[in-house]
Design a binder for these strands. Structure first.
Lengths: 245, 245
DNA sequence: AGAATAGTGTCTTTAAGACAATATTGG
DNA sequence: CCAATATTGTCTTAAAGACACTATTCT
């Protein structure tokens, strides 16, 4: 395929002479803490927006990142220590105005991590990092760049997907009860759900398997389930009809 | 917000000194010709992959494109003359190996254009451009870069979305019959559908309005509909169950 | 026993699948 | 009238909603 002419062209090619956008990756990291959806935010050490809270993110490093997802995973690991959570590409925003430095492009991922994996202080030097609780798809902080909008869009995507997928299982610990799982659905959707319908839906999907164990706490013990050994997200044929239709 | 320190930082900022990916936008342009799904392909004039067929695409030009979608629309207009078709961001692929020049990142859009809008020769200098028919999500040609894979993924996305949305209306002319629309669904899904169920589904969604006109051809005339004056895609609460479940 | 949480039974509702039947045109 | 295409009728099925009921634990 590569002709001599093409080889000559390639050896003379210098990307730095062209005007190109700034390229970054941002990761919206969700978890559930104390019955509320939270996002991980970090305080920026450098300009622009120095000392402003922002989403986790940074430059693609062509020397160390094999691909885009590797950049996202590297950032995630740096901030949380977590290696392989649920990670999905949300999309890419690129325009003239979002970064004062230059035309800027950012590819956005969102990650779901189980509540019990949250140990921020395990990360060395991670002082200005925190979980921010969400209210109405937003957090209190005014974030750097267009990060508040990015966050709102990711929450919207998450809410929509929860209506027809099993995504919330990725927010659960290894073993959990159906009641626990329903609570997570309800937190994300901001709606109460009928427990009979919920169990039918989840159990019929056959994504869970019965650990023969029970969770004892307070009253009647609840059966513990775990995710079947397969990572694929289940797509239901019908949406939950509640709330945001 | 912008402090003196930040201004100093910004005025001294030169993006060209950092190693950054090559940034492009590719557009997968679909239409239906003679009962078959087709994609627009162009023959590359320059290295790399000179004289090889490829998807429509090119560099982001920070001087003229306000945002990413503007780049996609510019490319689309250059090649087809069409200004505002249905355009959706598929996602972004970025890695070390897809372009021989450098670490490369491309944001992919897909567009749906009505079959009757196809006038390629209306575009000046558009000689090496053609509609390639799809078979099994692929075309005969071996395309440049990873464009065959990109195409396959966009077809997959299109197929999936057609199961729960009204997307195919964007492939229709201004006025069309329910039979015509059903044919388009069937072509994309590669399945026959029950016409009663199909009409019920579409009519109940209330996305169409009755032109009081009829299409006369051959036998019994069919009622002509048009898309209601509103661009939003309709999301059905239940999937079509046929085919790729 | 009573409160609290876990789990089941079952009737209704909604929208799709299946397929037969009717309607309207041109020849 | 016949062939072909458009359109409707209607029974069945799948899965969700609604809600009453039973089960198991602790105090």
């Amino acid at each position: 395929m590569t002709s001599e002419a093409e080889n000559n062209f390639l050896s003379g090619y210098d990307p730095s002479i062209y005007d190109q956008p700034i390229c970054t990756v941002d990761v919206v990291i969700f978890t559930i803490i104390e019955q509320q959806l939270h996002v991980l935010t970090v305080k920026r050490a450098e300009h622009p927006y120095q000392n402003t809270w922002s989403l986790v993110g940074g430059f693609i490093d062509p020397q160390i990142d094999l691909d885009l997802e590797a950049t996202a995973k590297r950032k995630l690991k740096e901030k949380t220590g977590i290696q392989s959570p649920y990670l999905e590409q949300y999309g890419t925003i690129g325009n003239q105005s979002r970064d004062p430095r230059h035309w800027s492009l950012t590819t956005i991922y969102f990650a779901l991590i189980p509540a019990d994996n949250v140990k921020l202080d395990a990360v060395p030097g991670a002082v200005d990092i925190k979980w921010s609780p969400l209210k109405d798809s937003m957090i209190k902080e005014k974030l750097a760049f267009d990060h508040n909008e990015i966050l709102a869009k990711c929450v919207e995507r998450l809410r929509n997907k929860v209506l027809y997928t099993s995504l919330p299982v990725h927010l659960m610990p290894k073993e959990f009860t159906l009641g626990d799982l329903q609570k997570i659905y309800e937190i994300i959707l901001e709606t109460k759900m009928d427990h009979k319908s919920f169990r039918r839906r989840i159990l019929n999907s056959e994504i869970l398997e019965d650990t023969t164990k029970f969770h004892h706490e307070g009253k009647r013990p609840a059966r513990l389930y775990r995710l079947k050994h397969q990572l694929e997200t289940h797509y239901f044929l019908r949406n939950i009809e509640s709330s945001s239709a």
